[in-house]
Amino acid sequence: MESTSPTALADLVRRAQKGDEAAQRELVVSYQHRVAGFVYAMTGRSDYVEDLSQQVFIKMIRAIDRLQAPAQFESWLFRLARNTCIDQLRRQKLRRIFLPFGEEHENIPEPPGAVDSEELDALQHALAQLRPQDRALLALVQEGRSHAEIAETLETSVAAVKARLHRAREHLREHYQPPHET
């Protein structure tokens, strides 16, 4: 969708708002990989990606007619993704309280990444140490969202976003332990 102009995106969103299924499908196809990547960065669980991404897009289809500014679609979509992931992580935390020896330790082994997978492991480990809100902040920045857009997503000020982002980056650096070079 990066190559699509803002006008074309707004037109597509308007068609989707009128219930045009082809437009809704095009939006899903255009954003599915970015949303999946965001969900994975937020949860660190590959087995959650498909399910949570599906939840995000179902919410998108059901609520798109209430989106007043089609130009804000991307910010709105990633706000849905962020909130869906945070809800899931809250539920997971509650489940861990009531089922301490449940299935939380089960995870599908991650496939090796495009770069050194140890670097990826180090990043994932560091992200896992952060609060979900901070993880969301860093993932939104990586997603290409501006400070203003993030402020709108989080319903806060740009200054607050900058301060929180600074702290989140500090925390990430504290926990980031890149692999040894042998």
């Binding site: 299924e21 970015r34 994975y40 670097e119």
Partner: peptide, 22 residues
Amino acid sequence: SWRALFSVGARQLRPGFAERVL
């Protein structure tokens, strides 16, 4: 590393994802 993280996430979607969502 960030790009790799996002691309691992993107690879988790099975083919036909959009149809399943709709």
